[in-house]
Design a protein around this nucleic acid. Structure first.
Length: 455
RNA sequence: GGCGCGGUGGCAGAAUGGUGAUGUAGAGGACUGCAAAUCCUCGUAUCCGGGUUCGAUUCCCGGCCGUGCCUCCA
């Protein structure tokens, strides 16, 4: 069986992936907090783990991929106050938009997409377990995780306790036993979202929801936990602390998830997106301007751990690459193929199995597209390889804009131009080309006659 | 300040201790009435300085530059 190699953030090494249970691979990736339109950083995470799930499915019989929706968070409360909309209206709205936008990028919905608000009892149970084991304490309606109680804390991000304190710029709440302690549960005012708990009316802190949802839907330990690189600290560090300590695994960082996979950032203009710079790129806007598939290819054009600087020029270039690949498929449109094979191409597969080396995989895809020893093989392989990457599954004629049926004006002009050409009236033929262009089409003369293509 | 990542052709971007992929842009050519597409050809690309080595873009050390995390963040 082919083996996947993945860079494990926990060990800082590329490792061979060995599932805990080869008959059922379990993956969790931190999803979005739904209070605004998804930006391209959210999209990169979704595309990367969608691809990882595809690759795992190609070599293991069963894969469960869980990615959550965080629908309780102070940022959502702020957004609600600003817009005047109810919190659940906002979260449902942006959850829906998130899923629609990701679908436009060819991202399949995760096998399970749990909502934080539907796992409050599990979070409360985790808090209770942590208190019982002496890893958490109550103070003024808060439940706090006591960081010094977990000696292995900081192992994922490589931070010693001294460094954390030295680097801390946050005000330390007076009720904290230790400056590094973080909130598991906090009190809510009557007008804030909250749930009854042993510590009064309150709501979860930021990190506990992922611990609860991952455990509920995958069981512990599970195989791979993923997310954006910025989540490593403190979010993932704290997830590990909560989940390991709640189950008495005080000395084993991998008792929660065996491997940690982090995707790199998307930058705009060489800098991280931020509100102050005003350089946020939203998926919602980009897919108005470009096909979602072009954006997906752009997101896959750099290795997932590398930073990716996204520009519109780059998306446009991806579009041109897809044009060429779809043209290859269009040229093979009459070639009959049997069902696509599970393994597209050995080199292609090896590229992806080597820590999801998508640039290499795309290079192989290009080679397949230009080297055509056997048309049926070529078509089959392109479709299979493209499918693995979430690309090339559309109708080539439609993608290329050859589908002009029903446009009588264009068809009439094409016929007229054919006549003009037959009469060697090239002046008129060129005029018609301009007229058709004004209608939004370009004319391509082919052995089968002229074709209009939507620009 | 602490920790990390990166600097490869115009641009994007892999890989590698010994002929440096792939794409895109550009140039030339074939084909075409002209185009488009396709095909062929082309380009003095591994940040700088040391070290290890028969050999370094690759490994090590030191610079310089860029960027990220340390605070909400995918």
């Amino acid at each position: 069986m082919p083996k996947l190699r993945l860079y494990n953030s926990l060990t800082r090494k590329k490792e061979e992936f060995t599932p805990l249970d080869p008959s059922h691979v379990r993956v969790y990736a931190c999803g979005p907090t739904v209070y605004n339109y998804a930006h391209i950083g959210n999209a990169r995470m979704a595309v990367v783990f969608d691809l990882l799930a595809n690759v795992l499915r190609s070599i293991y019989p069963k894969v469960t991929y869980v990615s959550n929706i965080t629908d309780v968070d102070d940022k959502i409360m702020v957004a609600a106050k600003e817009s005047g909309e109810a919190i659940d209206v906002i979260t449902r709205k942006f959850e829906k938009i998130y899923n629609e936008d990701m679908a436009a990028l060819g991202v399949a919905k995760p096998d399970v997409q749990p909502r934080a608000t539907e796992h409050i009892p599990e979070m409360i149970a985790l808090c209770e377990a942590l208190i019982k084991r002496g890893h958490a304490y109550e103070a003024e309606g808060n439940v706090l995780f006591n960081v010094p109680s977990f000696a292995a804390y900081g192992g994922l991000s490589g931070r010693s306790r001294d460094e954390q304190i030295a680097g801390a710029r946050v005000d330390v709440a007076p009720y904290k036993k230790d400056p590094a302690d973080f909130v598991l549960w906090k009190p809510s005012a009557a007008d804030q979202p909250g749930w009854d708990s042993p510590w009064g009316f309150g709501r979860p802190g930021w990190h506990i929801e992922c611990s609860a949802m991952a455990e509920k839907h995958l069981g512990l330990p599970f195989d791979i936990h993923g997310g954006g690189a910025d989540l490593k600290f403190p979010h993932h560090e704290n997830e590990i602390a909560q989940s390991c300590c709640a189950h008495g695994k005080d000395d084993d960082l991998s008792a929660f998830a065996k491997m940690w996979v982090h995707n790199g950032f998307v930058t705009v203009g060489g800098e991280k997106m931020s509100k102050s710079l005003g350089n946020f790129l939203l998926v919602h806007d980009l897919i108005e301007e470009f096909p979602g598939e072009a954006l997906r290819l752009t997101l896959l054009s750099a290795h997932y751990r590398q930073p990716l600087d996204l520009t519109k020029e780059k998306i446009a270039e991806s579009k041109r690459i897809l044009d060429r690949l779809y043209r290859t498929l269009y040229d093979l449109r009459d070639v009959q193929i049997s069902k696509s094979p599970a393994v597209a191409d050995i080199e292609f597969q090896e590229a992806l199995l080597d820590d999801l080396n998508t640039p290499q995989a795309i290079a192989v895809l290009n080679q397949i597209s230009s080297a055509s020893a056997n048309d049926a093989e070529e078509k089959k392989t392109l479709l299979a390889a493209g499918g693995m990457l979430g690309l090339l599954q559309q109708n080539p004629a439609k993608w290329l804009g050859y589908d002009v049926s029903g446009d009588n004006d264009v068809e009439k002009l094409l016929a007229e131009r054919t006549e003009a050409k037959a009469a060697k009236n090239f002046k008129r033929a060129d005029e018609i080309r301009d007229e058709v262009k004004a209608l939004g089409f370009t004319i391509e003369d082919t052995p089968e006659g002229p074709k209009a293509r939507k620009i």
